[in-house]
Amino acid sequence: MKVLNNSSVKKVLNFSPAILLILLVIYSFNTHENKNELEDEFFKEKKLLQNELNKIVADYKEITSKKKWLTKRVVNGMNKIIALKDSVEQLEKVNYDLLFKYSLKITKLERENRKLFLKVESLQKQNTKLRSENTQVKKDLQAEEKSFSSLVAENKKLKREELALKRKVNIAGTIEISSVLVEALKEKSNGKYTTTNRYKKTDAFRIKFDILPNELANIGNREIFVQILDDHNNTVPSEKSGSKNEISYNDLISIDYDREKISVVSLVSVDRASMNEGDYTVNVYIGKRKVGKSIINLR
Results as ranks from 00 to 15, higher is better:
Asp140Gln: 14
Asn6Ala: 14
Arg160Ala: 12
Asn30Ser: 08
Gly173Asn: 11
Val12Thr: 06
Lys66Met: 03
Val236Tyr: 02
Lys85Leu: 07
Thr281Gly: 03
Glu161Asp: 14
Ile106Ala: 13
Glu37Thr: 15
Ile175Pro: 09
Pro213Ala: 12
Tyr96Lys: 02
Leu185Val: 07
Ile81Lys: 01
Asn14Gly: 07
Arg73Gly: 10
Asp256Gly: 09
Asn221Val: 14
Asn197Arg: 01
Lys44Phe: 12
Asp230Tyr: 04
His32Cys: 15
Met275Leu: 03
Ser266Cys: 09
Gln136Cys: 00
Glu187Asn: 08
Ile255Pro: 05
Ile228Thr: 01
Glu37Asn: 13
Asn54Pro: 03
Ile106Gln: 06
Thr135Glu: 15
Lys55Gly: 03
Val137Asp: 07
Phe42Val: 00
Asn234Pro: 03
Asn5Gly: 14
Lys44Met: 06
Leu212Thr: 01
Glu183Asp: 07
Lys192Trp: 02
Ile171Lys: 15
Ser178Gln: 05
Leu118Asn: 12
Val88His: 01
Lys66Thr: 04
Gln227Arg: 15
Ile247Glu: 07
Gly220Ile: 02
Tyr60Gln: 07
Asn79Gly: 04
Asp210Ala: 09
Ser179Tyr: 07
Glu246Ser: 14
Gln50Phe: 00
Thr107Leu: 15
Arg272Lys: 15
Lys10Tyr: 09
Tyr257Ile: 09
Asn170Phe: 11
Lys290Gln: 13
Leu91Glu: 02
Lys115Val: 11
Ser266Lys: 04
Lys129Met: 06
Ile255Leu: 05
Thr64His: 05
Glu215Asp: 12
Lys168Phe: 13
Val74Trp: 00
Glu215Ala: 13
Gly287Phe: 13
Lys105Ile: 13
Lys157Glu: 14
Ile106Gly: 09
Ile253Ser: 03
Thr174Trp: 08
Ile253Thr: 10
Lys129Phe: 04
Lys156Pro: 01
Lys119Phe: 12
Gly287Met: 04
Val236Gly: 02
Glu260Gly: 13
Ser178Met: 01
Asn34Tyr: 08
Lys125Glu: 04
Asn127Trp: 09
Lys208Thr: 06
Glu144Ala: 14
Leu4Asp: 05
Lys11Phe: 08
Met78Cys: 02
Gln126Leu: 10
Ala204Pro: 02
Lys129Val: 05
Val226Ser: 04
Ile19Ser: 06
Lys44Trp: 10
Lys55Gln: 13
Leu38Tyr: 09
Asp271Ala: 04
Ile171Phe: 15
Leu53Cys: 03
Met1Arg: 06
Glu62Leu: 12
Tyr96Phe: 15
Phe148Cys: 14
Leu151Glu: 10
Val12Arg: 07
Ser254Phe: 08
Asp40Gly: 04
Lys146Arg: 11
Tyr249Trp: 05
Leu48Arg: 04
Lys146Ser: 15
Asn34Val: 06
Ile295Asn: 08
Ala273Leu: 13
Ile211Trp: 00
Lys115Gly: 10
Tyr60Asn: 07
Lys80Phe: 05
Gly173Ala: 15
Lys119Ser: 08
Asn36Tyr: 11
Lys240Glu: 12
Ser150Arg: 12
Lys46Phe: 01
Leu13Gly: 03
Leu298Cys: 05
Lys85Glu: 02
Leu229His: 04
Leu109Pro: 01
His232Arg: 10
Lys157Gln: 11
Val74Ile: 11
Phe42Ile: 00
Ala58Lys: 13
Asn218Leu: 14
